[in-house]
Structure formats: structure tokens, C-alpha cells
Amino acid sequence: MHKISIIIPIYNVEQYLPQCLDSVVTQTYPNLEIILVNDGSTDSCPQICEAYSEKDSRITVIHKQNGGLSDARNAGFNIATGDFISFVDSDDLLSPHFFQKLFQALTTHNADIAECEFKKFANEEEIKYFPDKAESSIKVFESEKMMEALFKGPLHVMVWNKLYKIALVRGKLFPVNRISEDVFWTYRIYGEAIKTVKINEELYFYRLRDDSIMGSRYSIKRLDSLDAYEEKIDYLKMKFPNLVQDVRKAYCFVLIDNYIQLRQHNEVDPDKFHRNIILEKIKSYNYWTELKKWRWKDLVWYKLFLWSPNGYASLRKYMDKKSKRLNVQK
């Protein structure tokens, strides 16, 4: 039976770690190598890791100085011995069939990557049980269609709802000291893959936390995602030029979102240094040969921002609230 290596970076999540590990060790696919990377936790996580390793011989624990999420994943990479590899965040939960179904889909279709749908939750009451479909629909993506699906959907950029062939990702380390590490890493992996399969079933459960990196107050580190987008565009120009236009448009709206965030958190950029740089990049899109390929809705939003950033931000906020109300009513 093929071995699956699972890398779980851990930092100060004592409240959630046992539930996460319980969902991993009870998987229906048994041949697992579970690598727990304690990234300098100052709470009881080191003791929790050791306790689980004593009960389950499949678990290996690494204790290291705090270096961040990417550094922890890389540390697990260095000792992984499986034929396939997966990443799990230490506050999330898995369906009991997560690895069984991903492995079956990947091997049946001779794919390089398998991914599933995921469900966001704030507390366990929202997922009292893990629904299991007897049969899940599977879609296959190849070559440029695979990359297009990654940027437009239904494939996702995050690394944790997937199973990879180890040969595909071996040696491809995550960027250290950057946030949005998934954005830096995933597109390069997909760019070298030949085939990906997508399971239309929620098998991964992603915990929403206010104190998480992306859930916390806006900081200048969020601008790392802009560097990731620029690197991605340069990469696509070389390997998938037909996709550059769509990704450039997406990047433009990421720039706009960060500009609005910096306006709302003036203390982060008091001298407007970053805002001015971002604004010039946004304005660089304002010519007809670029905009004529956009959908009219995107064009209207873009022009509204140029005319009135405050008006853009207010209308976006209103539309988001309206959308949330409609979703609740459903």
C-alpha cells in the first residue's frame, strides 16, 4: 500500500490541536506518515504532540525554533518519505475519508494532484457530523485548462485541500518569511503537473479564526500577495501566455483591495508611500487595449475606483453586506 506523508505545522493552537490530530489518526486510509512540526510553540502544543506520538507509531514530531508556516512546512518536507504528500493546518479538521477518496481519485485517473471542496466553520457546532457521499462527482483537468481552472475556479490556490505525488513537489520549498505562501507556491506546482482531479465533495473543514494570520488586523505583510501576483504573471508569460490577461485583471483588483485596506488603516502606511506605488500600478491599466477585453461589470468597478476610491469602498461594502443577507435567507 502506498504511503501518504502528512505535514502539519503547529504553533500555539493547543485549543484546537487535539481535534485536528484526532481527525487525522482516524482516517480510513491507514498507511500514513504523520509529521508534526512544532514551530516553537509556547503553549502546551509540544506536550500534545509527544502524547500523540507515544500512542501512534505513524507520528513523527519535529521541535524547532519559530520560523513561520513556510519554514515549518519545509522542515517536514525534508524528512517526508511517502509516495504522496499532503498538508493540513493544525486548527482544521478532516472528513474520515479525506485521504481515501483523494488517493482513489488521483490513482484512478493517473493524476498528479487531487483536490476536494472544503467547508469553512467558526465552531464545531456547524459541523456536528461529517457528511459522506457514497459517490462523488470527479472532474479532470489537463494542461492549460488546469491552470485556467486554478485562476478562475473551480480549482483553489490553497495547499491544504489536496494530495500531491511526491515526485511533483519534491524540492519545491515554500518561500520563508512571506505570507500568502500558497499564492507563491501553488501555481508553480500546477504549472508542472500534467493532470489534476477535483472531487466535488466537502472533505476538508477550514476553521475561521480572528487571531489567524489572515484573520488578524491588516498589516504591511499583506502586500506579499502583490509580489506573488507579479511573479505569477511573469511565469505565465513564459509558459501560459493565453492566461496572462485574466490574471492581470485579477491582480488589478487585488491592488485596489490593498489600496482600500491601506486607506482604512492609515497607521500602517501613514506617509502614503505604499498607497502611491499601488495607485500608480492601478492607473497603468487605464488604456483601451487593456480594458477592452474586460467584462463590463469589471470595467465599471475599475472606473468607479479611479473616479472615487471612497465611493468604490462604500459600494463594495454595501454589496458584500447585501450578499451575506441573501445567503443567510437561503
Rank of each mutant, 00 (worst) to 15 (best):
H2D: 10
H2W: 07
S5R: 11
I8F: 05
I10E: 04
N12I: 10
L17E: 03
D22V: 07
V25N: 08
P30G: 09
N31C: 08
N38K: 08
D43I: 04
P46E: 11
P46Y: 08
E50Y: 04
R58M: 03
I59W: 07
T60A: 07
H63L: 01
N66G: 12
G68E: 15
N74H: 09
N74P: 11
G76W: 13
F77P: 01
F77W: 02
N78T: 11
N78F: 12
I79V: 07
T81G: 01
G82R: 09
V88I: 15
L93C: 10
S95W: 03
F98V: 03
K101P: 02
L102R: 12
F103P: 06
Q104E: 12
A105S: 12
T108I: 12
A111P: 10
D112Y: 00
I113L: 12
I113Q: 04
F121K: 12
N123Q: 10
E124G: 04
Y129L: 10
F130T: 07
S136Q: 11
V140L: 04
K145P: 01
F151W: 06
G153T: 08
P154M: 01
W160D: 11
L163M: 02
L163W: 00
K165W: 08
L168P: 01
R170M: 09
F174A: 03
V176K: 02
S180P: 07
D182A: 12
V183C: 14
W185S: 12
Y190K: 06
I199F: 06
N200Y: 14
E202V: 06
L203S: 06
L203T: 02
Y204W: 05
R207V: 08
G215R: 01
S216F: 11
D227Q: 14
Y235M: 02
K237F: 00
K239Q: 00
N242Y: 00
V244L: 01
D246H: 01
L255V: 08
N258V: 03
Q261R: 13
Q261S: 15
Q264W: 14
N276S: 10
N276F: 02
K281S: 15
I282C: 08
S284C: 11
W288I: 06
K292E: 13
W296C: 02
D298N: 13
W301Y: 11
L304V: 09
S308E: 08
S308T: 07
A313C: 12
K317C: 13
Y318A: 13
D320W: 14
D320I: 15
D320S: 14
K322E: 05
R325D: 14
K330F: 10
